[in-house]
Design a protein around this nucleic acid. Structure first.
Lengths: 129, 129
DNA sequence: AGATCTTAGTATACATAAGTAACTAATTGG
DNA sequence: CCAATTAGTTACTTATGTATACTAAGATCT
């Protein structure tokens, strides 16, 4: 990320293909990464995902799956049975994304206590909320 | 992320210390990662950050810096001059976070074209917006 | 002395995105 | 006909972000 690294500037500055604004902001929401990891073990159905990802509403599951499908991370397959069966699975791109995402989550898990205690002391110092 | 990996389950399931909900969701907003990378080269002042991070408003810069400070990624130092000088810099924790975050952004940059074309063909298939 | 400049913010009003709870369509089984 | 199941919508509420104007605390110019 120094000035000798031109890629850093390209990634950092505002432009049409800024990967932070286009990709990270997209998957940085409340549910995308959770759904991504829920699908790493293999394809799964709508309601199965819904019960595995605790706390997600039907609407957010639908919407986030659509966004992931739109960006090419997830493939949606409809089986015209009755009741209809819809299966979601990661694409090659989705499995690729899961790797660096896992590094980040893993780091977050390792440093959870540090972050939590930083938060606690910040809140104590500024109790005037 | 298979069933043989108990850490995966711990990270994935809903609980008080789910790192996805507590850390990734926090820094996954529109500006956190941009500010983080803007500070990787060294400390910087409020207005300097504001002009380097194109498109950010004063309010969002203030607010996001406070959130990053709260979680322990950023240190804020006030120099009581006139006009007052305020410097922001990454902590050791912030520099640690920058590494996996950079991996992710780097992956996003490498696969930008793939994602963009997935988006384009999805939008073409569902033009009814 | 009074007006004006600087930095680092707040305050306010408003727009857009994200989230919740309740409802719907299509069909099978009893 | 009634209930159950799957995969969603619709209408509404709350959170997040934007645009613009304003403030504090001196320093410097007139």
């Amino acid at each position: 990320m120094s000035d000798t690294n031109p890629q850093a500037r390209r990634v950092f500055e505002q432009n049409e293909r800024c990967p932070i604004r286009n990709v990270v902001a997209q998957i940085g929401d409340k549910w995308s990464i959770l759904i991504l990891f829920a699908l790493v073990d293999g394809p799964d159905r709508f309601n199965a995902l819904k019960s595995r990802i605790q706390g997600i509403s039907q609407r957010m599951l639908t919407q986030t799956l659509r966004d992931l499908e739109r960006d090419g991370y997830v493939k949606r397959t409809v089986y015209p049975q009755v009741p209809v069966k819809v299966e979601y699975e990661l694409t090659e791109l989705g499995r690729g994304l899961a790797k660096p995402a896992w590094q980040l989550v893993s780091w977050a898990d390792d440093h959870f206590d540090e972050i939590a205690s930083a938060r606690a002391s910040y809140d104590e110092a500024n109790q005037a909320e």
